[in-house]
Simulated scan of single mutants.
Amino acid sequence: MQSDCWYNIALTFIPSIGPITRRVLLEEFTLSKNIFSATKKDLLQVKGIGEKIVNEILQWNNPQLVDAEFTFIQKHRITPLFITDANYPQKLLECPDAPTLLYYKGTVNLNANKILSIVGTRMPTQYGFYVIEECLKSLPKDVLIVSGLALGIDTIAHQTALVNGLNTIGVLAHGLDEIYPPPNKPLAKQMLQQGGLLTEFNCKTIAEKYNFPKRNRVVAGLADATLVVETALKGGSMITADFASQYHREVIAVPGKITDQRSRGCLKLIQENKATIYTNPNELLQQLNWVNTIPELSPAQKGLISLMKQQEIFSMDELLQLTGLGIGSLSGLLLQLELQQIIQVLPGESFTLMPAYYST
Rank of each mutant, 00 (worst) to 15 (best):
F212R: 13
K302C: 11
V119K: 06
N280W: 00
N273V: 06
V291H: 02
Q126G: 13
L81V: 04
R217L: 07
E338Y: 11
V345R: 12
P19V: 12
T12W: 06
P183S: 14
P124K: 03
D224Y: 03
D85H: 03
Q311D: 10
V251Y: 04
L176Q: 05
I132Y: 02
E272A: 04
I252K: 05
V229T: 08
T71H: 11
F36M: 12
N211D: 04
L110H: 12
V163K: 13
G328T: 13
I252G: 09
G324D: 00
T226M: 01
L65W: 02
P124W: 07
T259Y: 10
L65P: 03
E134P: 04
L285W: 00
E349M: 03
R122D: 06
N292G: 14
I206T: 12
T231K: 01
L322D: 08
E133R: 05
E272W: 01
L269A: 12
A253E: 09
L198A: 10
P355V: 05
L353R: 12
L176R: 06
G48N: 13
L337Y: 05
N216K: 09
N292Q: 14
N61G: 07
E312S: 10
G328I: 13
G165M: 08
L325W: 10
T360P: 01
T279Q: 11
A10R: 15
I169P: 12
P181L: 14
L44Q: 15
Y104F: 15
K33N: 12
K105E: 02
H158D: 07
W290P: 02
P63R: 03
A150Q: 05
G303E: 14
K141A: 15
P19K: 06
K33A: 05
E69N: 05
G265E: 04
Q271A: 05
P295N: 04
R215T: 13
Y7S: 14
Q340R: 00
K268T: 12
L339W: 02
V131D: 08
L198R: 09
T84E: 04
L176F: 05
I258F: 09
K105T: 01
Q344A: 08
A173K: 09
F201Q: 10
K137S: 09
L339Y: 09
M191E: 02
K189A: 11
C203P: 07
L192S: 08
L187V: 12
E272M: 11
E178Q: 03
L116Q: 08
Q336D: 14
I20Q: 11
S237G: 13
I169L: 07
N34D: 14
K209R: 15
P295D: 11
I258G: 03
I270N: 00
H248V: 14
